[in-house]
Write a protein that binds this DNA or RNA. Structure first.
Lengths: 213, 213
DNA sequence: AGTTTTATGTGATTTTTTTCACATAAAACT
DNA sequence: AGTTTTATGTGAAAAAAATCACATAAAACT
């Protein structure tokens, strides 16, 4: 299946908008409703859907339940996605306690840290030593990891993850990582995100930036 | 000044790559070195620089110190940027203790929460009631906010921030916000970022995704 | 049953972004 | 001093992404 990275991100955004609309009692949406709720162009919505083979009803729009089901299937939400967390610092710990993932059927099944003082195998989400990480990944066939270790340890930790069988990583360490082509890495750089805001606010380039977020 | 959103994000990435190179003792870079370190195309580096009026030396590349200084000026790093944090939940609290911002000359000067039990005006970064937020913003002329409140409270909190004078927001609540055109909102959606990873790992679209992060 | 309305789905178009490729000029070498 | 080398800076080209615009078909209305 052919898809732009942006289409995938938008798919996720549509899902969230649809859930919101559904919670308010809406049962049917049109591309312009949804576009408005998601902050995009109506044609974009339809184009995205056509890319993913989602179709609606001529003149009738889309039934929210059906549409949500299709999007959730595409985003693999039909079963719980097990993820491991590596690095139990500020960000890591926040993600461990973050409730946003589980409502999206994403479950952090274990955390790993290099600092023995942070370990706790009895916690709701057990925190193990990084020494046990490789075997845990193999035994449980984990494919997804959240990397929240210090910048200096990031690349070697990633290499270890990859060699153990991890295929996708959400990286919070502020460093550009290298990995084989079949590994998908999504870099979430908090400093960078905030710096972008600062740039648009204080440079006289304000008119450029998007005003929806 | 004319600039693509992506150029700005890349500027931030170049800065981080340059700092890394500098810390290893490098004093001069060429567009292809830097491109490699930042994970982009060399022509892209030069184009970006030309957009921002940064120039190097024919055949001589760029002096890291000069280049860094120019980029940091563009990104307003010459003085500490005061930011307020709204919402002291998991994510908010992690950001409060996160050390990544201060090394980038970004300082969270105060936090605000609606829950009186969380308040602590004696903490290193004081946590005040949201009731005091508007006056704090006005008195201290704060322009930047990190929004980490629950989705349901996000839009009204944003409206309050905007009316108090906030011009740029990093939004962590999983909802698309509306604001006037002169307000810059950067939406950091953690669920979405992880869902994107899941999509690329489990759909047969793996070949599409970028492998640098 | 026929007409009108209206929202989808998509080819065509436009806009944006990235990459190519080369003229240029500074440095290095002879 | 002249030649060669090499990396910048930028127009031109290509690629990617977003938007337009309209044919189409289903629904609603008469």
């Amino acid at each position: 299946m052919y898809a732009f990275k942006n289409s995938v991100t938008r798919l996720s955004r549509y899902k969230s908008a649809l859930k919101r609309l559904k919670s308010v009692g809406v049962v049917k949406v049109f591309s312009d409703n949804l576009a408005d709720a998601a902050g995009v162009n109506p044609a974009q919505v339809r184009k995205d859907f056509s890319v993913f083979g989602i179709s609606g009803n001529k003149k009738g729009g889309y039934q929210i339940d059906e549409l949500l089901a299709e999007i959730e299937t595409l985003l693999c939400k039909d079963k719980v996605q097990p993820v491991i967390l590596v690095g139990n610092g500020n960000i890591g710990n926040a993600l461990l306690n973050y409730t946003g993932f589980e409502k999206e059927n994403i479950k952090i099944v274990a955390a790993f840290d290099a600092d023995d003082n942070k370990l706790n195998s009895e916690a709701t989400v057990p925190i193990y030593s990084v020494d046990e990480m490789e075997s845990f990944i193999r035994e449980n066939q984990i494919k997804l990891a959240i990397l929240a270790v210090p910048a200096l340890a990031a690349q070697e930790t990633l290499d270890l993850l990859v060699s153990a069988g991890i295929k996708g990583v959400m990286n919070f360490s502020p460093i550009s990582l290298r990995a084989p082509d079949d590994i998908y890495i999504n870099h979430v750089d908090l400093e960078m995100e905030l710096e972008t805001v600062i740039f648009y606010v204080f440079s006289n380039a304000n008119a450029e930036g998007p005003q929806r977020g």
